[in-house]
Simulated scan of single mutants.
Amino acid sequence: MRQLSVVRRVVLLAGPSGSGKSRLACESGLPVVNLDDFYHDGDHPGMPRDPDLGIIDWDDPRAWDGERACDTLADLCRTGTAEIPSYDISVDSATGSHTVDVGAAAVIVAEGLFAGEIVAACRERGILADALVVRRSPWKNFLRRLARDLAERRKPPLTLVRRGIGLARRERALVRRQLTLGARPVGADGVRAAIRAATEAPSGMP
């Protein structure tokens, strides 16, 4: 009798910064890939900038390397291991890399602000299990995001406050874009249910 090999698939988990997607991904107990590690370095040609703050606009998809992220997820699904950049927003660049080994896991959670940008590409590659976007109150996200960014000293406090207010005002448009790209809106319980359903789906093939 031939041994079954694992068919790995990805749950893409999008959502505004501060929406709790990282916590929900880790809570699943599954291997997690942080898609924010695939931002371009700050000196990459064409990096978008916030016209008011003068810093890189991290909420513009042009700041993010979706093609590299999708290629890496495909490699991870195929081989079970992949090298992931380690990005530090405080210095606007990757500071190294780390290896992700998913072992025998059949489902991987890939979470990040722009996860919806690669829904179609992951579907075409046959690795998409589900695509979700966390939808919460923008001002709750603002408070969670500010507390996190201050604790991590990502940027000067005044910059973080000004940027956070701007993000809160644009947040609904960001979520709508993820919906048009193929993600479906869910709350925290919906994320848990979707991930549970993905793990219960058949994962082996002869």
Rank of each mutant, 00 (worst) to 15 (best):
L35W: 11
G29A: 05
G116T: 01
P51L: 02
I89D: 01
V107T: 15
I55L: 14
V7M: 15
D130R: 02
W139V: 10
A105W: 10
V133N: 07
W139I: 11
A168E: 04
H98E: 11
L4Y: 13
A105C: 06
A94S: 15
I118Q: 02
G66E: 04
G96R: 07
G204H: 14
R78A: 12
D43P: 00
G15A: 05
I89V: 08
L24P: 05
D57R: 00
G204L: 15
T81N: 00
V102I: 02
K155R: 13
V100C: 09
G164M: 02
V119S: 01
R136L: 12
E27Y: 03
A94G: 10
V10I: 15
A121P: 03
S5T: 14
T159G: 08
V33A: 04
V119W: 00
T99I: 13
E83W: 14
S203D: 12
S86I: 11
R136G: 07
A183C: 15
L167D: 11
V11N: 10
G204E: 14
R8Q: 09
R196I: 02
V10S: 10
L179V: 09
G18D: 14
A106V: 01
I118E: 03
A147P: 00
C77V: 04
S17N: 08
D92E: 14
G204I: 07
I127F: 00
P85M: 13
A183P: 10
G20D: 06
D36A: 09
M205L: 13
R9W: 09
V11K: 12
L12M: 15
A121S: 10
V191C: 00
A173W: 00
D71W: 08
A188N: 11
D65E: 06
F142K: 04
P156K: 01
D130T: 06
A129V: 00
F38D: 11
I89K: 09
C70T: 10
A120G: 03
A74V: 11
P85L: 12
D43I: 09
A115Y: 06
Y87G: 03
P16Q: 07
L128N: 05
G18W: 13
D92K: 14
L132F: 00
D88M: 15
V161H: 07
V11S: 11
Y39T: 06
L30A: 14
S137K: 08
A63S: 15
G112L: 01
V191K: 03
R153D: 08
V33H: 07
G204P: 02
R163V: 01
I55R: 13
A25F: 00
I195M: 08
A14V: 04
C77Q: 08
S17M: 00
S22V: 12
A168V: 03
G66F: 00
D37H: 15
W64P: 00
I118M: 11
R123G: 11
R125L: 05
E171A: 03
G80T: 06
